[in-house]
Amino acid sequence: MENRLLDQQLDLLRDKILLLGGTTEAALHRAMQSLTERDSELAKKVMDEDRIIDQMELEIDRLSVEILALQKPAAHDLRFVISVAKITPILERIADHAGSIAEAAIKINQEPQLKNYIDMPLMAEIAAEMLRTALDAFTSEDAAVSREVILRDQKIDECYHRVFDELIRIMINNPQAATCAAHLMFVAKHLERIGDYVKDICELNVYLREAAFIKHSPNQ
């Protein structure tokens, strides 16, 4: 006898979080595109569509609570619902950062362009790739890949420090570019935070697979 009702609800929950993950990925991609291609219309769309992501988060929250209250999942099923319930607000926050990048892009696009935005596109590329791999690892419950993605966060941090130093130099040498550089600094900070959040998702992937909490563990 299969537990059909619970399985149906878990499948629905999986579909919903994967949809949220895909939408979040797209928001991040389009937010960076609005910056690098100086497309403020696209940036506005990213900001507007954040409401859709908020709505998705609420739906997943409701379904997670419903499953916990009515189906009383255990073992792997329980870990799955807990992981989804914890990954969902992380994705929503990543989408918020994408919205903030889009908001910054609108302001930056009004200023003369700084040279290729330094390492910013590279940072965004690493963050997007980390997010995509983390979501794939969630789907396949691959703890090894998740652990590997966690290590990649260091690359983003290195990029962030390079971008930060460069922007400070620009602000000192060219005070007229200070406003644009300040906005770019926020963008870099948003990307750096996204890297941290993806790391959190990967830690939850490991929990889903191995029932081990590796967050705050020195030896992950």
């Binding site: 006898m1 299969e2 537990n3 619970l6 255990a74 073992a75 099923d77 329980l78």
Partner: peptide, 19 residues
């Protein structure tokens, strides 16, 4: 037992997939 049982049979039983 209820979060990460060692045995597949236990997992199947406590998650209602026992048959």
């Amino acid at each position: 037992m209820f979060t990460n049982p060692d045995e597949r049979l236990t997992e199947d039983y406590i998650t209602g997939r026992f048959g």
